[in-house]
Simulated scan of single mutants.
Amino acid sequence: MKVKIKSWIAVASWKWDVPEDEVCGICRVQFDGTCPNCRFPGDDCALLVGKCGHSFHMHCLLDWINTESSRGLCPMCRQKFEYVEQ
């Protein structure tokens, strides 16, 4: 018996390379979701990981850093926030 495929539909998915239960420390949304400022997950809202080990959506962290009370500190541990380039 011969089978001839006439058409096919490709399906793809992506996921950040973090454990499934990890959420943004600011908005509390999982990393494979979107931050409150974005419509779609992906490169428009990158994941930023600090040297302290805490991770945040890029937009959430930028909003946090722009507040007066942040003083450039990590919102979770209050150490100076320096991100790790990935």
Rank of each mutant, 00 (worst) to 15 (best):
C60Q: 03
D63R: 14
H59T: 09
S69Q: 13
T67C: 02
S70A: 10
L61S: 05
G72V: 07
C60K: 01
G50M: 02
D63A: 12
G50D: 00
L62W: 12
F56H: 03
F81I: 14
K51Q: 15
S69E: 13
N66I: 04
G50N: 00
S69C: 01
H57V: 06
H57M: 01
L62R: 14
H54W: 05
H57C: 10
W64R: 04
H57G: 03
W64G: 05
S55C: 15
E68A: 09
R71H: 12
K80P: 09
P75I: 03
Y83F: 15
L47C: 05
C74D: 14
E68W: 03
E68C: 04
S70Q: 01
E82G: 07
K51C: 12
G53Y: 07
R78S: 12
M58A: 13
V84T: 08
L62P: 00
C60E: 01
W64K: 03
L61F: 15
S69Y: 05
C74M: 13
C74N: 10
K80I: 05
F56G: 00
R71M: 08
C60W: 05
D63W: 01
L62E: 15
E82P: 02
L47P: 09
C52E: 03
C52M: 02
K80N: 04
H54T: 05
G53A: 02
M76K: 11
L48W: 11
Q79R: 12
L61E: 05
R71E: 14
L47H: 14
V49H: 06
C52S: 03
K80E: 13
Y83E: 07
T67Y: 11
F56D: 00
F81R: 04
W64V: 03
C77L: 06
V84F: 11
R71A: 11
H54P: 06
K51D: 09
A46V: 11
S70W: 00
A46F: 11
S55Q: 09
C74W: 12
P75Y: 05
H57Y: 02
Y83L: 08
Q79S: 14
S70R: 00
R78N: 10
S55H: 08
G72R: 01
G72H: 11
S55L: 08
L62G: 01
A46N: 12
Q79N: 11
L62I: 10
